[in-house]
Write a protein that binds this DNA or RNA. Structure first.
Lengths: 124, 124
DNA sequence: CAACTATATAGATATATAGTTATATAGTTA
DNA sequence: TAACTATATAACTATATATCTATATAGTTG
């Protein structure tokens, strides 16, 4: 079957990946992995502006990756979907391997791509 | 431990997620899941311009998610790292669940929160 | 109530990038 | 060689968004 996902679902999945495609948001998620935190602590730890952190928190919250709880003046954010860490591990391992392979390439001479003879069009 | 990833590694991981955060690239990956394909078939199937597809293919190739092989005039691309499908499945399931939860929220009255009853807040 | 604190939002700017059209490159075939 | 084909790249436009500053909102405390 050619299509695994509908167009709509593809958009949704892409949207989620994009949510994870920002270093600052990844840092926030890593921070929250230890447990819930109020905004000001995240701001202090990550050394960014409060509005910026708030915006990223909104984005993550809206995307369902974290959730919020109010306690007095503080808003505590926490991980809503631990799946993100599985994702990060997968990507991290894969990226590491890719980098290692590239380094190996640079050490070993490329030796030329073996040119295969053409075998007509591949209509399947 | 507060920090799971170094700053550099966080950037690398974010970069990879961003690579997956584009519907067109996800469609390309889904297409290639069936097997290697030359550029022109991808262009025909996805109904985008050839330069656009080529650019996305370059990005995916550079990121190590797909690899290329020349055969005569054709360049065949194929999946280099099947991990992407694990990622997609994870995200897909998580997103589906999130959507389902939201729908349930809309049906059930929001009795959970303490004092949020003064007026119907449209935002969430 | 006013003053204060914590967080959210609005508006502006700058950068990244998806898509376009036009052209270049590489390989093939006459 | 020139003509042709498949793919890549360049230059541009338009859109998205990360970050900033300033301000608004919500809750607390005097």
């Amino acid at each position: 079957m050619p299509i695994r996902l509908t167009d709509t679902m593809t958009e949704v999945v892409a949207q989620r990946f994009r949510l994870l495609g920002e270093p600052m948001r990844l840092r926030i998620l890593q921070l929250l992995e230890e447990g819930e935190l109020p905004v000001n602590e995240i701001v202090d730890t990550l050394k960014s502006s409060q509005p910026n952190i708030s915006k990223h928190l909104q984005a993550l919250c809206h995307g369902g990756l974290i959730c919020r709880r109010r306690d007095g003046l503080n808003i505590f954010y926490s991980i809503a979907d631990p799946m993100v860490f599985k994702l990060c591990d997968l990507v991290c391992n894969s990226a590491t391997e890719h980098t290692r392979a590239r380094l190996a390439e640079m050490n070993a001479p490329p030796a030329g791509e073996h040119k295969t003879r053409r075998n007509g069009r591949s209509r399947n």
